[in-house]
Design a protein around this nucleic acid. Structure first.
Lengths: 121, 121
DNA sequence: CATATGTACTACATTAAGGTGGTATAATAA
DNA sequence: TTATTATACCACCTTAATGTAGTACATATG
């Protein structure tokens, strides 16, 4: 039962539009569904729909689900103990860049990727 | 003939210290030599030596030789025409981060990686 | 019940990166 | 000339990521 005003897309439709195999797309979508980004609707007239509005899903959520956000937080030199108080030799030059990147991920939503040029990736 | 004051390392020695196979290391070193980061000295008493002091080799040089620095310069949305004058929807938030990252690569040398924790990479 | 959806599980193919190993050759110091 | 070094090919292996395919099953609408 659909109680959302968001559009429902079937695997068949998406596979055609994206020109990737139906079965493969389904597997990816099922994974995204388990990760909570989309909801799946089984049965006739079913399909996939965003679990919440795309403007509420942050890039950091996706990065975290796919590869873990931790990779972005560590010391560039690989030191466990590196911090503002106990900086490695590159901490002061690199940490601000890293922090800006993280805040970019935390503040940008997938809705903002609407105009992306997919063919470049 | 060696006319440098920098230390010469043989493949055999490096392979032992780094515990990777001699043959494999040689292949990587020959590649680095062709890319100009090190010089190889053939014959008895030969080996490898930095082509210039490590404090003159920038991360950007290495990135460029290995994967091409262009990948770091493009628009995050993949638009060819994106620029300060004709910005994509994320240009103003992302471009400054990208530019800081590039200047980090341009201004950091491999000499500064001396204390890196190799086991983390 | 019939039909159109998604799910689960399995098996295998493809590609790229990373790595191993052999043999022959070129260069150079001693 | 001999020993020690690097170079050039070549063939193959391993691993991980990505993609393809088949079959059976669960779910929901009408």
């Amino acid at each position: 039962m659909i109680n959302s005003d968001m559009q429902v897309f079937t695997a068949k439709h998406l596979a055609e539009v994206l020109t990737i195999p139906d079965k493969y797309l389904r597997r990816l979508m099922t994974d995204m569904s388990k990760k909570g980004f989309i909801k799946s609707i089984q049965g006739r007239e079913g399909g996939y729909v965003f679990a919440k509005n795309a403007s509420k899903i942050y890039l950091s959520d996706v990065v975290d689900a796919v590869e873990g956000i931790e990779r972005y937080n560590g010391c560039i030199m690989g030191h466990e103990t590196c911090s503002d108080e106990n900086p490695c030799s590159l901490h002061n030059t690199y940490a601000p860049i890293r922090d800006h990147l993280i805040s970019f991920l935390l503040n940008t939503t997938i809705a903002e990727l609407k105009d992306i040029n997919i063919s470049k990736f």
